[in-house]
């Protein structure tokens, strides 16, 4: 027997298909009777108009079915929401950056690595990995939320006072500059390694060469990279400690010198650039000697200034 295609039948069908199967017939029969009773009591012009008005009052079938099934109308209910947000923040702020970095490194090692394609890989990584994390976390929590309704014992994510974060301290004034320095040193190291690994400059004959002198990799490049790495590490220590100590600044100055003196020397000695690259890049033109000595002086001046700035930050504390 098929039910007549009335508004009531269509409404009842939409409600009962969302509730447990063992209750469907009963709820459907009761709904039909109730709608008919209510429509009968109304003083509308036609039975059809009354039926429509009653069903409009009953409202969205999804909402009504949720009430019958005693089911939440939220994907993640209020009990689980705090745990969900906490976990989401942890994932997005720690796991996501690591995963994206891994994608970019793999992409760089894979050969095709213009700066553009690496940035593209990073953005793509953030969107796909971040999207996946968000989606799966949400799905898992929605499932937990639904299972917990039958198993109220799942109390492992209960909030305790121990979970309160420490008081936020006064803003760290030099903190942002320290972060910027870490990024800058890391970028320099990455750029040096990248141009060595990828040989990005294309000669007229189609072969690819490094920009920096490959011979440096048997000597001067190591103190330069080492100095940068130590400076970056000291800046990170500075961020964690929220300030410089005398020992840190002295260590920084030493690392700064280990970095800057070889760099200034290879500028001054005109060893820095790859001769093949230089010949192709300059063509007929010859770089004046003043450029190299000038660059060497700038390197020394900048390094001295950087060390001096950190000593001054020390005295202000």
């Amino acid at each position: 027997m098929t039910a007549p295609n009335t508004l009531t039948e269509r409404y009842v069908q939409e409600v009962v298909r969302r509730i447990p199967a063992d209750q469907r017939t009963d709820v459907a029969d009761e709904l039909r009777a109730t709608i008919a009773d209510t429509a009968e009591a109304r003083e509308d012009e036609t039975p059809e108009a009354a039926e429509r008005a009653v069903i409009t009052e009953m409202g969205d079938p999804i909402r009504l079915a949720a009430k019958y099934a005693d089911r939440p109308l939220a994907l993640i209910g209020p009990d689980l929401y705090p745990a969900y947000i906490r976990l989401l923040v942890v994932l997005m702020s720690t796991v996501l950056p690591i995963a994206v970095l891994a994608v970019v490194v793999i992409d760089a090692l894979d050969g095709d690595n213009s700066v553009g394609s690496l940035i593209g890989a990073a953005i793509g990584g953030v969107l796909t990995i971040g999207g996946q994390m968000f989606a799966w976390l949400t799905v898992i929590f929605a499932l937990i939320d639904r299972m917990r309704r039958t198993d109220a014992a799942a109390k492992s994510l209960v909030w305790t006072p121990d979970m309160l974060p420490a008081l936020r301290r006064a803003p760290d004034k030099g903190g942002l500059a320290a972060y910027a320095s870490v990024v800058w040193y890391a970028s320099l190291i990455a750029a040096i390694v990248w141009q060595h690994a990828a040989a990005p400059y294309r000669l007229d004959d189609g072969s690819q060469v490094e920009v920096l002198n490959p011979a440096l990799w048997s000597n001067w490049i190591w103190p330069i990279i080492g100095g940068l790495a130590v400076m970056a590490a000291l800046e990170i220590v500075r961020i964690v400690r929220r300030g410089w100590t005398l020992a840190l600044v002295i260590a920084y100055t030493v690392a700064d010198l280990v970095f800057a003196l070889p760099l200034a020397w290879i500028f001054y000695d005109r060893q820095i650039l790859n001769p093949e690259f230089l010949a192709d890049f300059n063509g007929e033109w010859t770089t004046p000697a003043a450029f190299y000595s000038g660059a060497a002086i700038v390197v020394i001046a900048v390094s001295v200034t950087e060390a001096y700035k950190r000593f001054r930050m020390l005295s202000k504390v």
């Binding site: 209750q23 109730t34 909402r63 009504l64 019958y68 005693d70």
Partner: peptide, 12 residues
Amino acid sequence: VDGNTLYPLLRR
């Protein structure tokens, strides 16, 4: 009370 609140409540 609305019907869509009362009827599910009775079943509960």
